[in-house]
């Protein structure tokens, strides 16, 4: 604005002719911002809270702002380390013999090959096949096979106990049980070849399962009726999470024996097997009710 125009505008204001707009009203009162925004107090819904108690899965762990709490992150990292360690562990070659088990091995020669070539883990090598033919009992009702699978830690841990419990439970039902044996670098389908060789009516492979967070010591059991090479997963019944915090081996052994007996009775396994008559024998496993409350094992303690 030029000098003279500014001067005249000031004069207009002085004479009361300026600015047709009304004077601005008083400013609105703006409330002060909250003193602290994070962390928001975590109030889980009652349903989530209840559900979280029945699992060791990572639910109901809360958050701090948009992130996990520090202890949750540390716990996660520790559990992941446990899982990695379990996958990396190799079953010693001499372990089976030292435990009085028939030592077998798949066609896999190294741990790396085992992880990369599942197909080779499903067939026995020549030496094992010869040993099996020479030493194992034939024509049995149930052939239990301990194996390392994806967790040698689990195999060496509660594997023997599970084999013993399972065998005892089978004998208690009047079934004949095959020679105890242990397969190294084994995949689930190895039971087909072994079961066929020993002419078992039911083959049961008990092997370390793929480690999850914090569970490097879990065993799974896969049962198949009339094993022979070519059976599919649809022909198998399985049970997982056999470990102290899941289904303990003694309980698992009884259930597996029940399953094996049902297979022999119904002359089938897998999808075709009717589990309905077993409900009373399986107890909790057949129930539709929520599991009993679980407790996560804390590998990391954070001081608060």
């Amino acid at each position: 604005m030029s000098q003279t125009r500014a001067l005249v505008a000031a004069l207009r204001a002085k004479l009361g002719a300026a600015d047709p707009l009304p004077p601005p009203g008083p400013a609105a009162k703006i409330p002060a911002p909250p003193h602290r925004v994070f962390p928001v107090k975590h109030v889980p819904g009652s349903y989530a809270e209840k559900a979280a108690r029945h699992t060791t899965a990572l639910v109901g762990i809360g958050h701090v702002g948009t992130r996990y709490a520090t202890d949750v992150v540390l716990q996660f990292q520790a559990e992941l380390a446990v899982a990695h360690e379990a996958v990396d562990t190799v079953l010693p070659e001499s372990w089976a013999a030292s435990q009085g088990l028939l030592p077998l091995q798949s066609r896999v020669r190294s741990h790396r090959e085992f992880l990369l070539r599942p197909d080779r883990g499903r067939r026995l090598d020549e030496a094992s096949l010869a040993l099996l033919r020479a030493r194992a009992d034939k024509g049995v009702d149930v052939q239990p096979i301990l194996a390392d699978g994806l967790s040698a830690v689990a195999c060496m841990g509660s594997g023997l106990e599970l084999v013993r419990c399972f065998s005892d439970a089978c004998r208690a039902r009047g079934l004949t049980v095959g020679t105890p044996m242990c397969a190294r670098f084994a995949r689930v389908w190895l039971e087909d070849e072994i079961g066929a060789e020993v002419r078992a009516r039911v083959a049961a492979i008990l092997l370390g399962e793929r480690p999850g967070l914090g569970t490097g010591d879990g065993l799974s059991a896969y049962l198949v009726f009339e094993p022979r090479v070519g059976k599919t997963d649809g022909d198998r019944n399985m049970m997982s999470n056999i470990h102290a915090r899941g289904t303990p081996p003694p309980e698992a052994g009884v259930r597996l024996a029940t399953l094996a007996a049902a297979m022999l009775a119904q002359q089938t396994s897998g999808v075709a097997l009717d589990l309905a008559p077993l409900a009373s024998e399986l107890g909790d496993a057949a129930s539709r009710k929520p599991r009993a409350p679980q407790r996560r094992v804390r590998l990391v303690e954070v001081k608060r």
Partner: peptide, 23 residues
């Protein structure tokens, strides 16, 4: 266009005034 000009001395603009200051 932007500086020097007459101004209205009454509402109708029938009286004009030129109170210009040259710095």
């Amino acid at each position: 266009e932007h500086d020097a000009c007459f101004y209205r001395a009454d509402d109708a603009g029938t009286v004009a005034v030129f109170p210009h200051v040259i710095a």
